[in-house]
Design a binder for these strands. Structure first.
Length: 425
RNA sequence: GGAGGAAUAGCGAAGCGGUCAUAACGCGGCGGUCUUGAAAACCGUUUGAGAGCAAUCUCACGGGGGUUCGAAUCCCUCUUCCUCCGCCA
């Protein structure tokens, strides 16, 4: 959520910055400010009525004691009570509309981002060298199938399109990757959490994924179950809701968390050849990093998170690049995002393996996540998140970038201690 | 699944239709007095949200609704926790 006070005082700036995200907010903002005025007027009126009600209510027992006839007072009070109820009903209606307007407004992008979409993303730095092959390299789907790492057919048999099964060395490679990620994060001071894989609605709301992406997740329905639960689309949803409605003492910040979870997404997988295989599925494994910081520390924390993600890809020995996203390519909740993109030979291009973002106070406002300063002042915290990493694109990259002419695949050095061998054949 | 009980500030807990939510009382935290320092003792202080330039006002006793002039207190409903019984990997 954007600060309503900021919107009130700088509507032009808000409209301009959201335009950079490709979001035309002019009508929304005008509408919102109208509702805001209406809302505040109603609050003022209602509170004056309530103050009067409270004042007289305190006098009634006194009157009773003195034996005064209070029936005319009670009659007036009944009228007062009725008009308060009437006002409150109107207020609730206005506030409902106001809140839904507030909730759909995306976060403001940082001013230094280029406006526009993907085409304006800026690569910041490159690592490693483009792999060269003196043979015709195979794509990861063929490699994984031939080496028996992934069983695509039976995954589809069990659950339908968009699911696969890791088996044998493939399952071990997957597990080794996850352990490597977790161990590396642990050495950098993250706390490791294993969270529920199904979450209540308010988690998605705080993270900023709902109401917009309500239809992008898998909902669970059970007879007689009042609680609306969904399979989490990323551990970010859980980790960002961890401190929902809490005030964290300044001394406990920053909080640095990682979690491993499968991620469940409905997004219809593309059938383009370039996105075959495990690049986009309904379920994939990911280690997620989430950090809560003081507002003034979030820029530094952001650079650290980017570096944490880069470090993993670097240690795996990949050729990759880090890209600063244009405003329009950042997701709705985020003020800035850097993607780490890895080179996939069969696509002759880069695909995202990690996305690191700073939400600033956008998620904190939605989830009432605050900090109390040593001097007693209460501030919203900043939340940041980044994948560190999703395996579904790392494993294809490993088999493609590390393939040999005979169809075998070299195991990255950092994974060898988890697997106990250096070649998959 | 069945039967009971409970939810009040950081924690424990009192209040059970109005004069105790400016939330008693206790613990903890913070500041101070005393002390070479500490402990003890004593004194003070310690929830958050919203409206308003401000004075000030409003809201919150697990969530939501209702009864009433007035609800922490009565009623309905949901959630969570505890005790007992049943079932179960």
């Amino acid at each position: 959520m954007i600060d309503i006070k900021y919107i009130r005082e700088n509507p032009e700036d808000v409209i301009g910055r959201l335009a950079a995200k490709g979001y035309d907010a002019a009508v929304d903002i005008e509408n919102l400010l109208g509702l805001d005025r209406e809302r505040r007027t109603l609050i003022g009126e209602t509170e004056a009525l309530k103050a009067e009600q409270n004042r007289v209510t305190k006098l009634i027992p006194k009157y009773k004691k003195e034996g005064v006839d209070i029936s005319p007072v009670l009659k007036k009070m009944k009228e007062l009570s009725d008009s308060i109820k009437e006002n409150e009903e109107r207020l609730r209606e206005v506030e409902d509309r106001f809140n839904s307007c507030m909730l759909v407004l995306p976060n403001l992008p940082d001013p230094d981002l280029l406006p526009g979409g993907k085409e304006n993303n800026q690569p910041l730095r490159y690592f490693g060298k483009t792999p060269k092959f003196d043979f015709e390299p195979k794509n990861h789907v063929d490699l994984c199938t031939e080496l028996g790492l992934i069983d695509y057919k039976r995954g589809v048999k069990l659950s339908g399109s968009g699911f696969w099964i890791y088996r044998g060395l493939g399952a071990r490679l997957e597990w080794a990757l996850l352990n490597f990620f977790i161990d590396t994060h642990l050495s950098r001071g993250f706390e490791f959490l294993l969270v529920p894989h199904m979450l209540g609605y308010e988690c998605g709301l705080a993270a900023g994924q709902f109401p917009k992406f309500k239809n992008e997740v898998f909902w669970l329905e059970a007879e007689g179950d009042e609680r609306h639960r969904f399979m989490l689309p990323t551990a970010e949803t859980a980790l960002v809701s961890l401190h929902y409605d809490e005030i964290i003492p300044e001394s406990e910040l920053p909080k640095k968390y990682i979690s491993y979870t499968p991620c469940f997404r409905r997004e219809a997988g593309s059938y383009r050849a370039t996105e075959r295989g495990m690049v986009r599925g309904h379920q994939f494994n990911k280690v997620e990093m989430v950090e809560y910081t003081l507002p003034e520390d979030s820029d530094r924390a952001f650079e650290e998170l980017v570096e944490s993600a880069e470090n993993l890809v670097k240690l795996l020995g990949f050729h990759f690049r880090t890209v600063k996203l244009a405003a329009g390519d950042c997701s709705a909740s985020m003020a800035r995002t850097y993607d780490i993109e890895i080179y996939i030979p069969s696509m002759n291009g880069y695909i995202e393996v990690s996305s690191v973002s700073n939400a600033r106070d956008y998620q904190a406002r939605r989830g009432m996540m605050r900090t109390k300063r040593a001097n007693g002042k209460i501030d919203y915290v900043h939340t940041l998140n980044g994948s560190g990493l999703a395996t579904s694109r790392i494993l294809p990259a490993i088999v493609e970038q590390n393939q040999n002419a005979d169809g075998s695949v070299r195991v990255p050095e950092v994974l060898q201690k988890y697997l106990g061998f250096d070649l998959i054949k």
